[in-house]
Protein backbone atom coordinates (compact mmCIF):
# COMPACT_ATOMS: atom_id res chain seq x y z
CA UNK A 1 0.00 0.00 0.00
CA UNK A 2 2.98 2.23 0.58
CA UNK A 3 3.86 1.71 -3.07
CA UNK A 4 1.31 4.20 -4.40
CA UNK A 5 3.04 7.58 -4.62
CA UNK A 6 1.00 10.47 -5.94
CA UNK A 7 2.33 11.37 -9.37
CA UNK A 8 1.47 14.47 -11.36
CA UNK A 9 -1.70 14.00 -13.40
CA UNK A 10 -1.00 12.58 -16.80
CA UNK A 11 -2.13 14.57 -19.79
CA UNK A 12 -2.95 11.60 -22.01
CA UNK A 13 -4.66 9.44 -19.43
CA UNK A 14 -7.91 9.00 -21.28
CA UNK A 15 -6.27 7.14 -24.12
CA UNK A 16 -4.81 4.50 -21.80
CA UNK A 17 -7.91 3.57 -19.86
CA UNK A 18 -8.51 0.64 -22.17
CA UNK A 19 -5.41 -0.79 -20.45
CA UNK A 20 -7.60 -1.91 -17.55
CA UNK A 21 -8.86 -4.91 -19.49
CA UNK A 22 -7.02 -8.00 -20.63
CA UNK A 23 -6.27 -8.75 -24.29
CA UNK A 24 -9.03 -10.71 -26.04
CA UNK A 25 -6.79 -13.76 -26.20
CA UNK A 26 -6.13 -13.89 -22.45
CA UNK A 27 -9.79 -13.23 -21.77
CA UNK A 28 -10.83 -16.11 -24.01
CA UNK A 29 -8.36 -18.53 -22.46
CA UNK A 30 -9.44 -17.64 -18.91
CA UNK A 31 -13.13 -17.98 -19.74
CA UNK A 32 -12.54 -21.28 -21.53
CA UNK A 33 -10.46 -22.66 -18.63
CA UNK A 34 -13.03 -21.61 -16.03
CA UNK A 35 -15.98 -22.98 -17.97
CA UNK A 36 -14.11 -26.23 -18.60
CA UNK A 37 -13.19 -26.55 -14.93
CA UNK A 38 -16.77 -25.94 -13.77
CA UNK A 39 -18.15 -28.24 -16.45
CA UNK A 40 -15.92 -31.14 -15.38
CA UNK A 41 -16.08 -30.43 -11.67
CA UNK A 42 -19.67 -29.25 -11.12
CA UNK A 43 -21.94 -29.93 -14.05
CA UNK A 44 -20.62 -33.36 -15.02
CA UNK A 45 -20.94 -34.87 -11.49
CA UNK A 46 -24.44 -33.45 -11.23
CA UNK A 47 -25.49 -34.67 -14.67
CA UNK A 48 -23.93 -38.06 -13.95
CA UNK A 49 -26.32 -38.58 -11.03
CA UNK A 50 -29.36 -38.34 -13.31
CA UNK A 51 -27.80 -40.22 -16.21
CA UNK A 52 -26.87 -43.17 -13.99
CA UNK A 53 -30.22 -43.09 -12.18
CA UNK A 54 -32.15 -43.28 -15.44
CA UNK A 55 -29.57 -45.44 -17.26
CA UNK A 56 -31.77 -48.52 -17.11
CA UNK A 57 -34.98 -46.72 -17.96
CA UNK A 58 -37.82 -45.12 -16.09
CA UNK A 59 -39.31 -48.40 -14.89
CA UNK A 60 -36.06 -49.45 -13.18
CA UNK A 61 -35.89 -45.98 -11.67
CA UNK A 62 -39.44 -46.15 -10.37
CA UNK A 63 -38.86 -49.69 -9.16
CA UNK A 64 -35.78 -48.63 -7.14
CA UNK A 65 -37.66 -45.80 -5.50
CA UNK A 66 -40.73 -47.86 -4.69
CA UNK A 67 -38.72 -50.51 -2.85
CA UNK A 68 -39.98 -50.60 0.77
CA UNK A 69 -36.50 -49.78 2.14
CA UNK A 70 -36.17 -46.75 -0.14
CA UNK A 71 -39.62 -45.54 0.81
CA UNK A 72 -38.85 -46.01 4.49
CA UNK A 73 -35.61 -44.02 4.03
CA UNK A 74 -37.48 -41.18 2.32
CA UNK A 75 -40.10 -41.11 5.08
CA UNK A 76 -37.45 -41.13 7.82
CA UNK A 77 -35.46 -38.34 6.17
CA UNK A 78 -38.56 -36.15 5.85
CA UNK A 79 -39.52 -36.89 9.45
CA UNK A 80 -36.04 -35.97 10.72
CA UNK A 81 -36.12 -32.71 8.75
CA UNK A 82 -39.65 -31.98 10.01
CA UNK A 83 -38.53 -32.30 13.63
CA UNK A 84 -35.17 -30.56 13.19
CA UNK A 85 -36.45 -27.46 11.41
CA UNK A 86 -38.87 -26.17 14.12
CA UNK A 87 -36.23 -26.77 16.80
CA UNK A 88 -33.60 -24.81 14.90
CA UNK A 89 -36.00 -22.04 13.90
CA UNK A 90 -37.00 -21.57 17.54
CA UNK A 91 -33.36 -21.62 18.62
CA UNK A 92 -32.37 -19.25 15.84
CA UNK A 93 -35.12 -16.75 16.65
CA UNK A 94 -34.37 -16.85 20.37
CA UNK A 95 -30.62 -16.50 19.90
CA UNK A 96 -30.98 -13.71 17.35
CA UNK A 97 -33.42 -11.81 19.58
CA UNK A 98 -31.09 -11.99 22.57
CA UNK A 99 -27.96 -11.16 20.59
CA UNK A 100 -29.29 -8.48 18.24
CA UNK A 101 -31.66 -6.56 20.50
CA UNK A 102 -29.66 -6.46 23.72
CA UNK A 103 -26.18 -5.51 24.85
CA UNK A 104 -24.34 -7.90 27.15
CA UNK A 105 -20.86 -9.07 27.93
CA UNK A 106 -19.55 -12.14 26.17
CA UNK A 107 -21.60 -11.65 23.02
CA UNK A 108 -18.66 -12.56 20.80
CA UNK A 109 -18.10 -15.75 22.80
CA UNK A 110 -21.77 -16.71 22.44
CA UNK A 111 -21.61 -16.14 18.68
CA UNK A 112 -18.52 -18.33 18.44
CA UNK A 113 -20.22 -21.06 20.48
CA UNK A 114 -23.23 -20.99 18.18
CA UNK A 115 -20.93 -21.36 15.16
CA UNK A 116 -19.02 -24.22 16.78
CA UNK A 117 -20.94 -27.12 15.16
CA UNK A 118 -19.75 -25.92 11.74
CA UNK A 119 -16.15 -26.60 12.65
CA UNK A 120 -16.70 -30.01 14.21
CA UNK A 121 -16.21 -32.98 11.92
CA UNK A 122 -19.57 -34.75 11.46
CA UNK A 123 -18.05 -38.02 12.61
CA UNK A 124 -16.83 -36.40 15.82
CA UNK A 125 -20.33 -34.99 16.36
CA UNK A 126 -21.82 -38.45 16.03
CA UNK A 127 -19.19 -39.88 18.37
CA UNK A 128 -20.04 -37.30 21.04
CA UNK A 129 -23.63 -38.52 21.11
CA UNK A 130 -22.57 -42.16 21.21
CA UNK A 131 -20.42 -41.34 24.24
CA UNK A 132 -23.38 -39.69 25.96
CA UNK A 133 -26.29 -41.96 25.06
CA UNK A 134 -24.67 -45.20 23.83
CA UNK A 135 -24.65 -48.37 25.90
CA UNK A 136 -21.07 -47.61 27.02
CA UNK A 137 -21.91 -43.93 27.39
CA UNK A 138 -22.55 -41.73 30.39
CA UNK A 139 -26.35 -42.14 30.33
CA UNK A 140 -26.25 -45.57 28.69
CA UNK A 141 -26.93 -47.82 31.71
CA UNK A 142 -29.74 -45.57 32.98
CA UNK A 143 -31.39 -45.41 29.55
CA UNK A 144 -31.02 -49.16 29.22
CA UNK A 145 -32.79 -49.95 32.51
CA UNK A 146 -35.61 -47.61 31.53
CA UNK A 147 -35.78 -49.14 28.08
CA UNK A 148 -35.22 -45.85 26.26
CA UNK A 149 -33.28 -46.13 23.04
CA UNK A 150 -31.61 -43.03 21.65
CA UNK A 151 -28.57 -44.29 19.77
CA UNK A 152 -29.43 -46.51 16.77
CA UNK A 153 -32.92 -44.99 16.82
CA UNK A 154 -34.82 -41.89 15.71
CA UNK A 155 -33.94 -39.67 18.72
CA UNK A 156 -30.20 -40.07 18.09
CA UNK A 157 -30.59 -39.27 14.39
CA UNK A 158 -32.64 -36.17 15.22
CA UNK A 159 -30.20 -35.01 17.91
CA UNK A 160 -27.13 -35.24 15.67
CA UNK A 161 -29.02 -33.53 12.86
CA UNK A 162 -30.01 -30.71 15.23
CA UNK A 163 -26.34 -30.44 16.22
CA UNK A 164 -24.93 -30.13 12.69
CA UNK A 165 -27.63 -27.68 11.55
CA UNK A 166 -27.81 -25.57 14.73
CA UNK A 167 -25.99 -22.46 13.43
CA UNK A 168 -27.88 -22.03 10.13
CA UNK A 169 -30.95 -20.02 11.19
CA UNK A 170 -29.25 -18.08 13.99
CA UNK A 171 -26.36 -16.97 11.82
CA UNK A 172 -28.71 -15.67 9.09
CA UNK A 173 -30.99 -13.88 11.55
CA UNK A 174 -28.45 -12.15 13.82
CA UNK A 175 -27.10 -9.74 11.15
CA UNK A 176 -30.60 -9.07 9.78
CA UNK A 177 -32.01 -8.28 13.22
CA UNK A 178 -28.97 -6.17 14.07
CA UNK A 179 -29.43 -4.17 10.88
CA UNK A 180 -33.11 -3.42 11.55
CA UNK A 181 -32.33 -2.28 15.09
CA UNK A 182 -34.94 -2.03 17.85
CA UNK A 183 -36.67 1.29 17.16
CA UNK A 184 -39.72 -0.27 15.50
CA UNK A 185 -40.24 -2.70 18.35
CA UNK A 186 -39.86 0.13 20.85
CA UNK A 187 -42.46 2.15 18.98
CA UNK A 188 -44.87 -0.80 18.99
CA UNK A 189 -44.37 -1.32 22.72
CA UNK A 190 -44.84 2.37 23.43
CA UNK A 191 -48.13 2.24 21.56
CA UNK A 192 -49.26 -0.48 23.90
CA UNK A 193 -48.61 -3.69 21.98
CA UNK A 194 -47.62 -6.71 24.05
CA UNK A 195 -44.22 -8.35 23.64
CA UNK A 196 -45.64 -11.27 21.67
CA UNK A 197 -47.73 -9.06 19.41
CA UNK A 198 -44.66 -6.94 18.74
CA UNK A 199 -42.67 -10.03 17.87
CA UNK A 200 -45.30 -11.50 15.54
CA UNK A 201 -46.40 -8.27 13.87
CA UNK A 202 -43.20 -6.21 13.79
CA UNK A 203 -40.08 -8.34 14.17
CA UNK A 204 -41.04 -11.45 12.23
CA UNK A 205 -42.19 -9.60 9.07
CA UNK A 206 -38.97 -7.57 9.03
CA UNK A 207 -36.74 -10.66 9.12
CA UNK A 208 -38.86 -13.03 7.05
CA UNK A 209 -36.49 -13.25 4.07
CA UNK A 210 -33.47 -13.92 6.23
CA UNK A 211 -35.45 -16.49 8.17
CA UNK A 212 -36.56 -18.23 4.99
CA UNK A 213 -32.96 -18.24 3.75
CA UNK A 214 -31.80 -19.89 6.97
CA UNK A 215 -34.62 -22.45 6.83
CA UNK A 216 -33.74 -23.42 3.26
CA UNK A 217 -30.06 -23.98 4.08
CA UNK A 218 -30.92 -25.78 7.32
CA UNK A 219 -33.35 -28.04 5.50
CA UNK A 220 -30.83 -28.95 2.80
CA UNK A 221 -28.25 -29.92 5.39
CA UNK A 222 -30.77 -31.81 7.56
CA UNK A 223 -31.84 -33.91 4.60
CA UNK A 224 -28.32 -34.49 3.34
CA UNK A 225 -26.34 -35.06 6.55
CA UNK A 226 -24.32 -38.23 6.29
CA UNK A 227 -21.31 -38.53 8.61
CA UNK A 228 -22.90 -37.66 11.95
CA UNK A 229 -26.08 -39.62 11.27
CA UNK A 230 -24.06 -42.57 9.99
CA UNK A 231 -22.33 -42.93 13.36
CA UNK A 232 -25.53 -42.96 15.44
CA UNK A 233 -28.01 -44.65 13.09
CA UNK A 234 -27.04 -48.30 13.34
CA UNK A 235 -27.90 -48.78 9.64
CA UNK A 236 -31.01 -50.89 10.09
CA UNK A 237 -32.57 -51.08 6.63
CA UNK A 238 -36.16 -49.89 6.56
CA UNK A 239 -35.85 -48.47 10.07
CA UNK A 240 -32.88 -46.20 10.78
CA UNK A 241 -31.50 -45.64 7.28
CA UNK A 242 -31.97 -42.08 6.06
CA UNK A 243 -31.74 -41.35 2.33
CA UNK A 244 -27.98 -40.60 2.31
CA UNK A 245 -27.34 -43.78 4.32
CA UNK A 246 -29.50 -45.75 1.90
CA UNK A 247 -27.35 -44.40 -0.94
CA UNK A 248 -24.24 -45.76 0.74
CA UNK A 249 -25.79 -49.13 1.52
CA UNK A 250 -27.09 -49.64 -2.03
CA UNK A 251 -23.70 -48.61 -3.41
CA UNK A 252 -21.93 -51.16 -1.20
CA UNK A 253 -24.39 -53.82 -2.38
CA UNK A 254 -23.34 -52.99 -5.98
CA UNK A 255 -26.85 -51.81 -6.74
CA UNK A 256 -25.67 -48.68 -8.53
CA UNK A 257 -28.95 -47.91 -10.28
CA UNK A 258 -30.89 -47.87 -7.02
CA UNK A 259 -28.14 -45.89 -5.25
CA UNK A 260 -28.25 -43.27 -8.00
CA UNK A 261 -32.05 -43.26 -7.98
CA UNK A 262 -32.15 -42.28 -4.30
CA UNK A 263 -29.22 -39.90 -4.91
CA UNK A 264 -31.14 -38.24 -7.75
CA UNK A 265 -33.92 -37.28 -5.34
CA UNK A 266 -31.34 -35.72 -3.02
CA UNK A 267 -29.77 -33.90 -5.98
CA UNK A 268 -33.18 -32.56 -6.99
CA UNK A 269 -33.71 -31.23 -3.47
CA UNK A 270 -30.26 -29.60 -3.67
CA UNK A 271 -31.11 -27.96 -7.00
CA UNK A 272 -34.45 -26.73 -5.66
CA UNK A 273 -32.60 -25.32 -2.64
CA UNK A 274 -30.22 -23.42 -4.92
CA UNK A 275 -33.08 -22.09 -7.04
CA UNK A 276 -34.98 -20.79 -4.01
CA UNK A 277 -31.75 -19.37 -2.59
CA UNK A 278 -31.04 -17.53 -5.85
CA UNK A 279 -34.57 -16.05 -5.79
CA UNK A 280 -34.19 -14.94 -2.18
CA UNK A 281 -30.80 -13.36 -2.86
CA UNK A 282 -32.16 -11.56 -5.90
CA UNK A 283 -35.05 -10.31 -3.80
CA UNK A 284 -32.75 -9.09 -0.99
CA UNK A 285 -30.37 -7.40 -3.43
CA UNK A 286 -33.25 -5.59 -5.10
CA UNK A 287 -34.56 -4.36 -1.76
CA UNK A 288 -31.05 -3.33 -0.75
CA UNK A 289 -30.50 -1.42 -3.95
CA UNK A 290 -33.85 0.37 -3.68
CA UNK A 291 -33.02 1.51 -0.17
CA UNK A 292 -29.52 2.59 -1.15
CA UNK A 293 -30.78 4.48 -4.20
CA UNK A 294 -33.40 6.24 -2.11
CA UNK A 295 -30.76 7.20 0.47
CA UNK A 296 -28.31 8.34 -2.21
CA UNK A 297 -30.93 10.42 -3.99
CA UNK A 298 -31.90 12.10 -0.76
CA UNK A 299 -28.28 12.93 0.04
CA UNK A 300 -27.02 14.01 -3.34
CA UNK A 301 -29.10 16.23 -5.54
CA UNK A 302 -28.79 16.09 -9.30
CA UNK A 303 -25.17 16.08 -10.32
CA UNK A 304 -22.41 13.97 -11.87
CA UNK A 305 -22.78 10.35 -10.82
CA UNK A 306 -19.87 7.94 -10.43
CA UNK A 307 -20.19 6.97 -14.10
CA UNK A 308 -19.43 10.51 -15.21
CA UNK A 309 -16.33 10.58 -12.99
CA UNK A 310 -14.72 7.45 -14.41
CA UNK A 311 -15.30 8.56 -17.96
CA UNK A 312 -13.51 11.87 -17.45
Amino acid sequence: MASHPHPPPSSHGAARISGTGEPVFVRGVLIALSVAFLAVFLILPLANVFVQALGKGWSAYAHSLSHPDSRAAIRLTLLVAAITLPVNVTFGLAAAWAIAKFEFRGKAVLLTLIDLPFSVSPVVAGLMYVLVFGLQGVLGPWLDTHDIQIIFALPGIVLTTVFVTLPFVARELVPVMQATGAEQEQAALTLGASGWTTFWRVTLPSVKWGLLYGIILCNARAIGEFGAVSVVSGHIAGQTDTMPLAVEKLYQEFNATAAFAVASLLALIALATLAIKACLEWNMRRKDRRERDAAANARRGPGPGPVALTAA
Binding site: L38, L42, I43, L44, P45, L46, N48, V49, Q52, A220, I223, G224, E225, F226, G227, M243, P244, L245, V247, E248, Y251, A256, A259, F260, A263, L266, A267, A270, L271, T273, L274, A275, K277, A278
Partner: peptide
Protein backbone atom coordinates in the same frame (compact mmCIF):
# COMPACT_ATOMS: atom_id res chain seq x y z
CA UNK B 1 -25.75 -19.95 -9.49
CA UNK B 2 -24.20 -23.42 -9.81
CA UNK B 3 -21.10 -22.52 -7.80
CA UNK B 4 -22.94 -23.38 -4.58
CA UNK B 5 -23.84 -26.90 -5.70
CA UNK B 6 -21.24 -28.52 -3.42
CA UNK B 7 -22.75 -26.64 -0.45
CA UNK B 8 -26.26 -27.87 -1.20
CA UNK B 9 -25.55 -31.34 -2.54
CA UNK B 10 -25.45 -34.02 0.18
CA UNK B 11 -21.89 -35.27 0.58
CA UNK B 12 -23.00 -38.86 -0.01
CA UNK B 13 -24.32 -37.89 -3.45
CA UNK B 14 -21.09 -36.04 -4.24
CA UNK B 15 -19.01 -39.06 -3.20
CA UNK B 16 -21.19 -41.47 -5.15
CA UNK B 17 -21.11 -39.54 -8.41
CA UNK B 18 -17.39 -38.67 -8.18
CA UNK B 19 -16.51 -42.30 -7.48
CA UNK B 20 -18.49 -43.37 -10.54
CA UNK B 21 -16.94 -40.66 -12.75
Amino acid sequence: ALIDVPFALPTAVAGLTLASL
